[in-house]
Each structure stands twice: as C-alpha cells, then as structure tokens.
C-alpha cells in the first residue's frame, strides 16, 4: 500500500470528506490513521507530552470543524492536516514565555539527521515530492539550510536560532530568507 501513495492520499481524502459530512466513524478512522504522525510532529516542537496531548486534541477538534472546507484541489489531505497541527503547536509554543535559553536550543537532532528521514524510503507523503524537497534542500548552504529545517521541525524562533548559531538575529533572518527563496525557486523548477 505504501508503494502507491496516490491511493493512500485518496483514502485519507475520502475519510476527511466523510468527516466533513459529519460521519464520526470516518473521523475516528482518520484519527487512527494520522494521529501518530501529527503527535510526532507536535511533540518534537513542544517537547512536553502533556502540552502536546492538549495540542493534538485541539488539532483534531479543528480538523473536525474544518473538514467540510477541505478541497482536494488545494493539496494532499496529510499536508492540510500537518499545517493545522504545526500551526497549533507553534501558537502554543509562542504563548509559552520561558522557553528561550533552555537547553532545548541545542538538544536536537542535527539538520542532517532530520534530512535522513526524507531519505528513509517511502514516507507518508508523496515520495516524489519528498525526493524533490530533499534534492532542493541539498542545494542550500548547510548552515543556512539547517536554520530552515530546525525551525520547521522544532519550532525555533529567530532568537533561538541566533543563540544556537551564535549569530545576530539579523543574520539568522537573512539566512532564512536566502534559503527559503532558493528552495522555492528550486521546487518550482526554475
């Protein structure tokens, strides 16, 4: 099944649409299918299990509320749900005031560690898209690339990245923008 991600995508889309039609069983199946993935994403950002559990609950309530508005043309269902999950986690994180300066700024996997996951064969998403993203991330200068990867996966702020890399915040912003522009140009095939 994982060799045919288009089928998985369609299956998740069907469940999401049926949840949008207020079918609780479809929503429960959707929960069974993606909650582990979304919890992994949120736990990496929030580091705190209790907080991540609350955030996952909030995320599924939002998915339930918004499922009827999901449109296949707008993208893959997993991407849509990941966006909701990440936004919820980052909003929670930013409402915590005391994270800056904690050891968590350095206690992470490296950018290269993270990218290994993209190399780990088939992922939940489209493997072609995963390969394209890996290819384009590879084209970036390593340190600037890692600011993007670590911000995305750990929810680091500019200030936290500045602390981790011992650079001014302005430099981090420059790295982020340069990396993102180059990345998007590559992904768009320029």
């Amino acid at each position: 099944m994982s060799e045919t991600p288009a089928d998985d995508r369609d299956s998740l889309a069907v469940l999401l649409e049926r949840a949008g039609a207020r079918e609780r069983a479809a929503f429960e199946a959707l929960y069974q299918a993606v909650s582990g993935k979304l919890f992994g994403v949120q736990l990496r950002i929030l580091k705190d299990r209790t907080l991540a559990e609350d955030t996952l609950q909030e995320t599924f309530l939002k998915i339930w509320e918004r499922a009827a508005s999901y449109d296949r043309k707008a993208g893959a269902p997993l991407s849509w749900m990941i966006a909701i999950a990440r936004n919820a986690a980052i909003d929670r994180l930013r409402s915590k005031e005391d994270r800056l300066g904690k050891a968590s700024v350095t206690e992470t996997e490296t950018g290269e560690d993270i990218l290994q996951y993209l190399d780990g064969g088939i992922t939940a998403g489209d493997p072609v898209e995963a390969r394209a993203l890996r290819h384009c991330l590879n084209g970036l200068e390593e340190q600037a690339r890692d600011t993007v990867v670590l911000a995305y996966c750990y929810g680091f702020s500019r200030e936290e990245l500045a602390e981790r890399y011992a650079r001014p915040v302005g430099t981090i912003k420059t790295w982020l923008h340069r990396s993102l522009k180059t990345l998007f140009q590559c992904l768009e095939g320029d």
Binding site: G40, S79, Y117, A124, G125, A130
Partner: peptide
Amino acid sequence: RLAPLAAAL
C-alpha cells in the same frame, strides 16, 4: 511544499 519534511518525521 514543506509538508514532506513533517510527513517524514
């Protein structure tokens, strides 16, 4: 565009 990274975690 970035979702494959989260999906791979």
